[in-house]
Design a protein around this nucleic acid. Structure first.
Lengths: 235, 235
DNA sequence: AAGTGGTCTAGACCACAGG
DNA sequence: CTGTGGTCTAGACCACTTG
């Protein structure tokens, strides 16, 4: 782990351990420099990371202050996409379908592959604290995600991909829509036809820019409470 | 403007001017260093900024590549909050109410003021390309936003606040919910009761951490297409 | 092995907030 | 004016990808 990440992580832990309230001033840079025996630039880099994560805000000429989330029960929506801190919630999944097939046209387009190439198709229902959270349909480029089974898909597929397959996940594009549930979706989410839904299409890329997963997720509107922290000025 | 911002801006313009496709490799760092007569660190800082903005992705040991937005008609949702690039759309507003009043309890709480202090209350309907985009109710701390009138509120209130009042806007917290429209909202958005809505509560802070605006916005689900780019690894 | 991006440092200098 | 955060530099060194 890089030094500035390590420092950021320790400062974050200190903030959380002491449960510092919003607006608390952190020590001056000099303090961190000597505490971690490092240069000013590295300390600033660590703190900038925390600022982007929404943990602190920096006021030039004044100091660095703690920024806190004020509401509970929201799914955080940081730059990792969702489920950054799934640990806060109890998330489980039930696999409805899993097979190898040829991708539909839109999927092939988004994954930038030929419609003749194989993809893994997975359909799951995911639960949060025992309630239906979402319906998920995912297509994985089989030449990248070389193997998948029901047991794996019951847990976190991404953990499996990055840990077991050694594939490095990069960035993603998310497209959000608000729509109405159709009959089938309503039934699976235990809601009514015509009820609201959040529908998200996501393309996940490897760190070298190759798309490997295209997924369509329909969220239960009753569980769809999201939280997002903006940092304003382009850091 | 800072040097690294200037460089980032110029590189961005070059990318857009030449309409470089996704995956195009940018020149190596050395090229930028001599072109802008600057140090390696500064070039990296500029490119990291562009990476966070979703314009490029960096692959260690390989190069820096262009990343592009693939779909049109989505409202971008960068770290500035929404309406980063309102220029892409034609956004107008109709002011329904504007007055000075005492804040309801939840508003006072979120603005961290006493319920006896004055706030500006503004209710607007905003339009995008002539269609109803959202209903907006905003409360501004009057001790910070000292003056407001209907003419100002017809345009961009934030432009007015930052330019005319010289107030420096910092960061914001956004809370998203998916809900159903009630009768009154449906009527104003020209939709039906029970139709989906995206409901967003936002607290805006000054750059020194003081909250100055609390707003509740109800979006027309038919216009609610948002786009978000995740950068994955914590930059 | 060569090329390329990225970290880290030490120090000069700048920009802003607040008394 | 002082304190504090932030930029910028030059260069050493490291980590990853590609051939």
């Amino acid at each position: 782990m890089l030094k500035y990440q390590q420092i950021a992580s320790e400062i974050q832990q200190d903030i959380e351990k002491d449960d510092l309230p919003q607006g608390t001033k952190l020590p001056v840079l000099e303090t961190f420099m000597s505490k971690y025996k490092t240069s000013k630039s590295t300390v600033i880099k660590a703190l900038s990371l925390l600022e982007r994560k929404g943990l602190v805000y920096q006021v030039r000429g004044s100091g660095i202050f703690v920024r806190r989330r004020n509401r509970k029960g929201y799914i955080s929506f940081s730059n990792q996409g969702f489920s950054d801190e799934l640990s806060e919630f109890d998330i489980t999944a039930k696999v409805m379908e899993l097979d190898i097939r040829k991708p539909p046209e839109d999927v092939a387009f988004n994954l930038k592959i030929h419609p003749k190439e194989d993809v893994y198709y997975v359909r799951r229902i995911r639960y949060i604290n025992g309630q239906t959270l979402c319906l998920e349909e995912s297509y994985y480029n089989k030449s990248i995600v070389t193997y998948l089974n029901t047991e794996i898909a019951t847990g976190s597929i991404f953990d499996y991909i990055s840990n077991a397959l050694g594939v490095k996940i990069g960035f993603s594009d998310l497209y959000f829509h608000i729509q109405k549930l159709n009959q089938e979706e309503a039934q699976q989410l235990q809601l009514k036809k015509g009820d609201p839904k959040l529908f998200v299409e996501t393309i996940f890329y490897l760190n070298n820019g190759v798309p490997f997963d295209f997924s369509k997720v329909t969220y239960n509107y009753q569980q769809s409470q999201f939280f997002f922290q903006s940092t304003g000025h382009s850091l």
